[in-house]
């Protein structure tokens, strides 16, 4: 472990673990997503630490962050910005919205209407927004960390597939383990520690990490395995539709980052298995129940059916 960059990322992980106790796997996945230049969707019940995670990530990665609380009466302009007439100059001037930042925390994204949700689409995919015919570029890097409540809750507008597909990963945090929760209860508010988190990576280092991850060697055996997995989702009757080529690419990108985080210069099937559920869980659906995302169950089935060794 002589790589200083890897050490820095490990430091970031350790720091984050101080505010989110016992969630090392989820933190690692979230970091993997960020290092793969992808947007992250955190789906969980309220009060599980979604926002804490987002803030923590922004801090340790040294990114300028904005937070937007999505509500049902929100309009696209509330996120992107608006042109206002200035009597002094007699011109319209563009007032940038909260989207102009390096890390946008979109809290409870499914509380707002599809119209507003879609306003984020261009920003996420193209890294730019268009207002009144003018295209404004967003800063680089640009990340969106969105949190959402489970779709079964009241007052939610489920994200359409096209929007879900823009998120590289979807993770959920889950309840803490009993001993961790006890520590949490005894130790008091961990939120206050957020401000004490160190900044572990500079934006330049972040770009360099991203470049390194892309060079991880993927042997034909690993690609075979990945293809078998993807093909299975397309052929099997368990799935109503299979993983798209974009999904397959996302899987490879995340697996590479994961391998780099493990300190390896090549991919192994385990890297794919580790990121499989967060990457494709929100991109697949069961054949019998088109309305639900039974991602975890399907991914387990997928893993059990596709042989690693071929």
């Amino acid at each position: 472990m002589s790589d200083p960059l890897l050490n820095a990322v490990e430091d970031a992980l350790n720091a984050l673990e101080r505010v989110l106790l016992g969630k090392r796997q989820q933190l690692r996945l979230a970091l993997t997503c960020m290092l793969s230049q992808g947007h992250l969707l955190i789906e969980d019940l309220p009060g599980m630490g979604k926002t804490t995670l987002a803030h923590g990530l922004a801090r340790v990665l040294g990114l300028e962050d904005h937070r937007v609380q999505f509500t049902s009466d929100m309009l696209p302009a509330d996120i992107i910005g608006v042109s206002v007439f200035e009597p002094a100059s007699g011109e319209f001037r563009f007032h940038a919205g909260p989207v102009f930042c390096q890390l946008l925390l979109a809290d409870e994204i499914n509380r707002t209407t599809p119209k507003t949700q879609s306003a984020l689409l261009e920003a996420m995919e193209e890294g730019q927004v268009t207002v009144d015919g003018h295209t404004y570029r967003l800063p680089k890097p640009f990340f969106v960390i969105a949190t959402q409540n489970p779709a079964t809750q009241y007052g939610t507008f489920p994200l359409p597939e096209s929007q879900l597909d823009r998120f590289l990963m979807r993770i959920s945090l889950g309840y803490p383990a009993p001993e961790v929760e006890r520590k949490l209860l005894l130790g008091g508010d961990t939120r206050s520690e957020l401000s004490t988190l160190p900044r572990c990576l500079t934006p330049n280092e972040l770009v360099e990490v991203q470049q390194r991850c892309a060079t991880i060697h993927a042997s034909s055996s690993v690609i075979d395995y990945l293809q078998r997995l993807v093909q299975f989702t397309r052929d099997s009757e368990l799935f109503s539709y299979g993983v798209s080529p974009r999904g397959a690419l996302a899987l490879l990108r995340c697996a590479r980052t994961w391998a780099w985080l493990e300190g390896r210069a090549h991919l192994v099937p385990e890297d794919i298995q580790q990121v499989l559920e967060p990457v494709i869980g929100h991109r697949i659906r069961t054949a019998e129940d088109i309305g639900s995302h039974a991602g975890t169950r399907l991914v387990n089935e997928l893993l059990a059916q596709v042989d690693v060794l071929g």
């Binding site: 192994v268 099937p269 385990e270 298995q273 893993l303 059990a304 059916q305 596709v306 690693v308 060794l309």
Partner: peptide, 9 residues
Amino acid sequence: RRTDETLQR
């Protein structure tokens, strides 16, 4: 051996 088990594991 489980199908999702790599040789290493």
